[in-house]
Design a binder for these strands. Structure first.
Length: 586
RNA sequence: GGGGUCGUAGUUCAAUUCGGCUAGAGCACCGGCCUGUCACGCCGGAAGUUGCGGGUUCGAGCCCCGUCGACCCCGCCA
């Protein structure tokens, strides 16, 4: 090694030692005589002093250094003069008096300043990611990521799990998200898909008797990226044989506890609380509720149904529901307009406002349809008080609850509610097996088609699929869905029935899932698993704006990489080898 | 695919309500001064096809149209 020590390592205890340091020039302060240079590496900073009285040529050379030059400095560690010590820096007590300087590599003029608090804008940061990653906060994020994954591995290894890799090139099964496809050269016209998750493989590992599997698995979904979503991302994929919900919960909680212990030194309270999907929707209008603050929804269907309002009466007669949320202290005109627009954009017919006046009297466009007794009941149910405004929307469930869930979040945002600090994990359980496809009206899996129905609901698979409940569960942290899992189907016939229920024909079942169904016919340990997203977990732990900040080389929201210019065209030769020709509109 | 915001010096940002004289400042860069700084300080300098293309106008960084890119949101994300 060129260096004897790293930055951040030297303290007063090293006084008098002759050391060699290597690193980047962070900042320099040229006082005309004395010259100070802060050297940076992954581990920290160290101040180096050049003194012209000791060596004027050396000091002159050092004065010509620029930020991000890579240098090797040799010198003697010494204590700083008494009043020059710094307590706020780890190495603030010492400095290295340089007697030798070697420039290993000069930095050209930088596209942006690395040693600057304010960051460059994201296009530049992504194009020059290797410079962006020199910034200590970014290195910190990646270190947290490493510690997180390491903690997960340590815990699962200790619990008898095997880490097993599964293929990146696999069969395309067009359920769920859009697949990334890879053309086959050997079998022209055929394609591999990149895994959206290793779902079937991990179940096959259970069939194989591997019993406890996990993988830090890269997954690919060809959908538009978001601040919390990347086309390729990393999941902790795990699966357990002879396991049920509680077993998966216990292992997941243990792994997360290890992560928070190692990264933040925080002891998570276990077990995590649980809430059913129905409770989450009714109280928060979300299947991933942020329970750090109130503004909970209330169900005012009954009260509103008894009012003379045609809108409410009709909704209730048609089996719809009415949900309310209270804005404490009322709303400004602007805020009310904003919330109404939000509700309409989210698909509500409208948003009703009831201002609570003196004596519990209601004001607002629909207030006249409420008798004093009914008004009284509305106040009791919602808990609203004088000066508050009650907001309500009517319509089908769960869509209306979701609208009011959005209103709740917006309301919390605009009133600047203090979200309680801390880490509020939550298991959400008892999901419906299917959701209604808004386009076809038919059922689609709400988790994935390998999720086991609740045994008591299996009889309704064909007759009333939307009432079938599943053994799926989500892990939620501070309102962010970290991952989903389920107890799986392990009987081939039940698997066929679920696939048929979501409209897969028998031929398609054989073609796409035949190998899998056959596997289920050779003796299968009942199994269950989960797949929490690593990027999102690290994102929340780091407290950064977006998921891109915890990924070394992320894609843009247009799914490109400014760094290497991908995706990019390929040569006609490459296409010919694959038997492909392009047919691009415009 | 749709909506929104943004694009000005290497970089981060300015540039009067409805368009008006030579497009400014911090950091970085170059030159000079400075021996205890740590956001060092002081003096001076260089640095611009205002993303690109078109239009309106006596005159456009600013208004209009198109286009490219980035970010945020909707759709999408089993």
């Amino acid at each position: 090694m060129l260096r004897t020590h790293t930055r951040g390592e030297l303290t007063a205890a090293n006084e008098g030692e002759r050391v060699t340091l290597c690193g980047f020039v962070w900042k320099s302060r040229d006082l005309g005589g004395l010259l100070f240079i802060d050297l940076r590496d992954r581990y920290g900073f160290t101040q180096v002093v050049f003194d012209p009285v000791v060596d004027s040529v050396l000091t002159k050379d050092a004065a010509a250094l620029h930020g991000e030059d890579v240098v090797e400095v040799t010198g003697v560690v010494r204590l700083r003069p008494g009043d020059m010590r710094r307590e706020d820096i780890k190495t603030g007590e010492i400095e290295v008096r340089a007697d030798c300087l070697r420039v290993l590599s000069r930095a050209a003029r930088l596209p942006f300043l690395v040693a600057e608090e304010e960051t460059a804008k994201e296009p530049l940061r992504l194009k020059y990611r290797y410079l962006d990653l020199r910034r200590p906060p970014m290195q910190w994020n990646l270190e947290i990521r490493h510690v997180t994954i390491n903690a997960i591995r340590q815990y699962l290894n200790s619990r008898g799990f095997l880490e097993i890799e599964t293929p990146i090139l696999m069969k395309s099964t067009p359920e769920g998200a859009r697949d990334y496809l890879v053309p086959s050269r050997v079998h022209k016209g055929n394609f591999y898909a990149l895994p959206q998750s290793p779902q079937m493989y991990k179940q096959l590992l259970m069939v194989a008797g591997l019993d406890r599997y996990y993988q830090i698995a890269r997954c690919f979904r060809d959908e538009d990226p978001r601040v919390d979503r990347q086309p390729e991302f990393t999941q902790l994929d795990l699966e357990m044989s002879f396991a049920e919900e509680d077993d998966v919960f216990e292992v997941t909680e243990g792994a997360f506890a290890g992560v928070f212990r190692e990264t933040l030194g925080y002891e998570l309270p276990l077990p995590f609380p649980r809430m059913t999907y129905h409770e989450a929707m009714n109280r928060y209008g979300r299947d991933k509720p942020d329970v750090r603050f109130g503004f909970e929804l209330t169900d005012v269907t009954e009260v509103c149904g008894e009012s003379e309002s045609a809108v409410f009466k009709k909704t209730v007669e048609e089996g719809g529901r009415v949900f309310a949320v209270v804005a404490p202290g009322g709303l400004s005109r602007k805020e009310a307009d904003e919330l109404e627009k939000l509700a309409k954009d989210e698909g509500a017919a409208g948003l009703a406002f009831f201002k609570v006046e003196d004596g519990g009297k209601l004001a607002g466009a629909l207030a006249k349809f409420f008798t004093p007794a009914l008004s009284e009941r509305l106040l009791t149910v919602t808990g609203a008080e004088r000066g508050d405004t009650i907001l309500a929307a009517a319509g089908p469930f769960p869509a209306t609850a979701e609208v009011m869930g959005s209103v709740r979040l917006a309301l919390a945002e605009m009133t600047g509610v203090q979200k309680a600090s801390g880490w509020h994990f939550l298991w959400v359980t008892d999901f419906p097996l299917f959701e209604e496809d808004p386009e076809t009206g038919g059922p689609v899996p709400s988790h994935h088609p390998f999720t086991s129905p609740k045994p008591e609901d299996i009889e309704y698979l064909e007759t009333d699929p939307l009432r079938v409940m599943s053994r799926a569960y989500d892990i939620v942290l501070n309102g962010v869905e970290l991952g989903s899992g389920s107890v799986r189907i392990f009987e081939p016939e039940l698997q066929r029935r679920v696939l048929r229920a979501v409209g897969v024909t028998d031929e398609e079942i054989e073609e796409r899932f035949g190998f899998f169904l056959e596997a289920l016919s050779y003796g299968v340990p009942p199994h269950a698993g989960i797949a929490p997203g690593i990027d999102r977990l690290v994102w929340l732990i780091c407290g950064v704006i977006g998921i891109r900040d915890v990924i070394a080389f992320p894609k843009t929201t247009e799914a490109t990489s400014p760094l290497d210019g991908s995706p990019s065209p390929v040569s006609p030769t490459q296409l010919r080898e694959l038997g492909l020709s392009l047919d691009i509109d415009e």
